[in-house]
Design a protein around this nucleic acid. Structure first.
Lengths: 286, 286
DNA sequence: CCCTGCTCGTAACGTTTGTTACAGGGGCTT
DNA sequence: AAGCCCCTGTAACAAACGTTACGAGCAGGG
């Protein structure tokens, strides 16, 4: 029964024969890989429901993978699960055949991103982080958020979340010229949170300088080399952004933003939970 | 709240009630902990044989743990397996109080994000990734990008980069109503790249369905549970998004997007390098 | 336009599984 | 030393499961 010839892992086999599957079988394949390996450990009916296909399709899927029966398939899945004790990525360092440069590229890229994030969080001063959370949780103060060419997406992402847990969140979007008008609105008790990474933008610098001049508290989220805005910032949070690519990676910075949002939400939970419920209500009606 | 405040993990529960077990039940407990959680995912008969006890003893064992049936026990086991990526921090029992301490919170949060990313990349079908890169590198085709409430930031991020290396990139932003007008412009040779994560948005679904009906190639970037849009998508890329927070994390999804941008840039390098230089020129002048 | 191929879901089948009643057996109490 | 009780495995039951035959639906080719 248990032939001891070590076949490639099921996940690999699925990825390799992705092209051979029919449309619905491919759906099953995606569901399995997305919720690996739990989806395959469920019953056929549950797996089928999860993938929105019929039970026979699941069986044809595992049949095409070379298994004589669904229980056989599950047994193999459990065997792999038992053998694996490393992190999923480290587990697949070299996928030899049928995997072109795509696999290698993805692995090195992922490794760089992971390294960025762990380094970023490891070097993050907890006190500085806490201080920024404290500012974001001060609901009486308004928060203005702005980003650069690529980091503006992060500014938007932060605003979209923060807006739900507290009032007074403004995202400076659009042309830099428009910021000047909104800047008139900024005063002593306000907070300006700026994203700026290398190829630092002059427009952001002048904005931050003016906001500071008006008495606002400036928070800077930047890369490890620190934007010149750091001179005008009360708090600085730095993230790693280098990856083997022509572009920089904002993944670590996004992780940082999400940590800020999570911590702020937690601190404001009493009032935030009501706001979230209210927002959901509005979304349902609208 | 944090979603992890359910009942304690099964492994913990087993260790806690170890004293209450009878002799043979304790045998089952040790076997389960030694081969956790695989032993519990097998059939009752196999579990019994492994522990060298009878099947009813296994049933009495899970009954004493508080489960109404063996399938219930297995379902809980799978849920835990899916939630925590198993090995790394499974031993830290009390994560609930971690929110208090800033440093500990950052560590657990970072660990979750890291795990999401490594799992996402490990389970990513290289062929599917390559196919999407191929689409994005087809400069004659136009690319329409759209996202949901929170993922729209990712759509914007992708657009901002893609727009530099190739022409014909359109970001559907603003109100969903406005999309309809721009949809008229979509035809057979176009590509629609949709971001949609849980609390899947109906507006995105109908947009994707209509785009597919018009003959466009739909690419979906979603979470591990797969948006219903998968039904209309030619290619699906799934990322992990769960973190110990009230919110989901898009960090893994951003890493995925950046990998797409990097690979596409690389493939288009001959033409892209000229474009990038030209864009830089414009920025310097402007 | 009809035909042929393949794909997919419905429904019924047979098997395995989880479950439970019951009786044998070992250990502690009296 | 005998009796009682709590375990524990054997065996029969019922439920759920995996499996398979069949036909509808659809796309490509003649």
């Amino acid at each position: 029964m248990t032939g001891t010839l070590d076949s490639p892992s099921i996940a690999e086999r699925v990825r390799a024969s992705m092209a051979r599957f029919t449309t619905t079988e491919r759906k099953a394949a995606h569901v399995l890989l997305a919720a690996y390996p739990v989806a395959g450990l469920e019953t056929v009916a549950e797996f089928a429901r999860r993938a929105d296909v019929s039970a026979p399709t699941i069986l044809r899927f595992v049949g095409r993978l070379g298994f004589a029966s669904y229980p056989d398939f599950q047994k193999q899945l459990r065997t792999e699960l038992d053998a694996q004790s490393k992190t999923p990525l480290a587990k697949t360092p070299e996928r030899s055949s049928a995997m072109r440069d795509g696999g290698a590229f993805l692995n090195t890229f992922a490794a760089a991103v992971l390294d960025n994030i762990s380094t970023t969080f490891a070097n993050l001063p907890a006190a500085e982080f806490e201080a920024v959370v404290g500012l974001l949780a001060a609901t009486r103060r308004r928060v203005f958020v702005v980003g650069g060419r690529f980091t503006d997406a992060l500014a938007q992402y932060l605003s979209a979340h923060l807006r739900i847990v507290r009032p007074g969140v403004v995202h400076f979007d659009g042309q830099a010229d428009n910021w000047r008008d909104q800047l008139l609105d900024v005063n002593r008790k306000d907070i300006l949170l700026v994203f700026d990474i290398r190829r630092y933008q002059e427009s952001l610098f002048s904005l931050a300088a003016k906001a500071e001049a008006r008495g606002a508290t400036v928070v800077l989220v930047t890369d490890q080399w620190l934007s010149p805005i750091a001179r005008h910032a009360a708090h600085v949070l730095a993230a790693r952004i280098a990856v083997p690519s022509n572009w920089d990676s904002s993944a670590a910075m996004l992780g940082l933003v999400e940590a800020l949002v999570a911590a702020t939400t937690d601190r404001l939970w009493d009032s935030a939970s009501d706001r979230i419920a209210a927002v959901e209500e509005l979304r349902r009606d609208g």
